[in-house]
C-alpha cells in the first residue's frame, strides 16, 4: 500500500478536485470543469466517481461501493478493491455504516444522514446534450437559463408514448436555477435527491464535477397535465417482500418465469435478517 499516495491520486490533484467540489457545492447543479486524470480503469467504469471519492476520502472513512444498487457486481467490487489497496480505508456493505458511498445508477433505499457523502458516477453530465450537440450552445443555455428545450424532450415522450417515458436520467431543476442530469438513476430515485447527505457527481471522460449540498431543493421537470411520477415495477420483492424498494427483474428460465428482487442488495439483506420473507425467499438462516 505504501507504493501509492493515499487514495492513489497525488495531493495536488486531490486539491484541484476538492476545489472543483467546493465550487460545485457553492453553485448547486452547475457543472464545474476539472482536469480529469487518467485512472487505471477504462472510461465508463467510474473514473469520475473514483476521482471524486479519492479526493474526499480520509483514512478514518468507511467506504461502500454499489453498482445498480448491488455491492457484489464487477464494477463495485473492483472499485472497492482499488481503494482497499490504495487508501487502506475500511469498507462496508452496510449503507448506514458507510461514511462515503460511491454509486452507479442508484440511490440506496436506506435514508442517508448528514455525516455521509454520496458520490455518483456520471457518464454524460449534460442533460441537454442529446437535444443540442454544441457545447458552446448548451453552456450558453445554462448561463441564460434557457431550458425550454428540456421540455421539448418530455413533449416528444408524451406525443410518442402517451406519457413521459423517460425512466432514468430524468432531468431535474436545482434550487430553481440549473437543470441537472442526476446521472442514470431510475426516476424512482428522483424524490430522494433532496436528502441530508452531501451528493457529489463526477464525470471523468467529460471532465465535469457537480454537486448537491444537503437539503437542496430538487424538482423533477414535468407538465402541469402530466405530472412527474416516480415509478417502479408493481410487485413486492420476491426475497424480502418489500413493497417500497426499486426492483430488478430476473428471468429464471425459458418458460417465462421471472422474479423481482430489490436492486439494493444491502436493503434486501437487512430486511431478510429482520425476518421478512418474500414469495421465493427462504427463512433467514
Amino acid at each position: 500500500m505504501s507504493d501509492y499516495n493515499f487514495a492513489y491520486l497525488d495531493e495536488q490533484t486531490k486539491r484541484m478536485i476538492r476545489r472543483a467540489i467546493l465550487k460545485g457545492l457553492a453553485v448547486p447543479g452547475y457543472q464545474v470543469p476539472f482536469a480529469s486524470r487518467e485512472m487505471p480503469m477504462p472510461y465508463g467504469w467510474g473514473t469520475g466517481g473514483v476521482q471524486v471519492t479519492a479526493a474526499t476520502l480520509v483514512p478514518e472513512d468507511s467506504l461502500k461501493v454499489i453498482d445498480q444498487g448491488a455491492d457484489d457486481t464487477t464494477n463495485a467490487v473492483s472499485i472497492r478493491k482499488f481503494f482497499e489497496r490504495t487508501a487502506g480505508v475500511a469498507t462496508t456493505e452496510e449503507t448506514t455504516k458507510a461514511s462515503v458511498i460511491q454509486t452507479r445508477h442508484r440511490i440506496p433505499e436506506a435514508e442517508l444522514s448528514e455525516d455521509q457523502i454520496l458520490v455518483y458516477q456520471v457518464p454524460i453530465p449534460e442533460p441537454l446534450r442529446f437535444l443540442e450537440p454544441r457545447e458552446t450552445e448548451t453552456r450558453k443555455m445554462h448561463s441564460l437559463e434557457e431550458y425550454g428545450l428540456m421540455h421539448v424532450k418530455l413533449y416528444e415522450d408524451i406525443s410518442q408514448h402517451g406519457d413521459i417515458a423517460t425512466a432514468y436520467a430524468y432531468p431535474v431543476k436545482v434550487e430553481e436555477r440549473y437543470v441537472m442530469d442526476p446521472s442514470p438513476i431510475p426516476k424512482f430515485d428522483n424524490p430522494k435527491l433532496e436528502m441530508a447527505a452531501i451528493q457529489l457527481f463526477g464525470a471523468g471522460r467529460e471532465q465535469r464535477i457537480y454537486a448537491l449540498p444537503p437539503y437542496t431543493r430538487v424538482v423533477s421537470l414535468d407538465f402541469e397535465d402530466y405530472p412527474f411520477e416516480a415509478t417502479k415495477a408493481d410487485y413486492p420483492c420476491d426475497l424480502c417482500a418489500a413493497e417500497d424498494s426499486y426492483l430488478d427483474e430476473v428471468i429464471l428460465d425459458d418458460a417465462g418465469s421471472r422474479m423481482f428482487v430489490c436492486s439494493d442488495t444491502d436493503y434486501c439483506r437487512s430486511r431478510r435478517a429482520e425476518g421478512h420473507v418474500g414469495r421465493l425467499g427462504e427463512e433467514a438462516a
Binding site: E146, G148, L149, H151, V152, Y155, E156, I158, S159, F223, E224, D225, Y226
Partner: peptide
C-alpha cells in the same frame, strides 16, 4: 408538434394539452 411547441415551452408553457 415539438418544433412548434418549442417556442411556447421556451417562454414558460408547461401544459402539454
Amino acid at each position: 408538434g415539438g418544433n412548434i411547441g418549442e417556442r411556447l415551452m421556451a417562454v414558460g408553457g408547461r401544459h402539454y394539452g
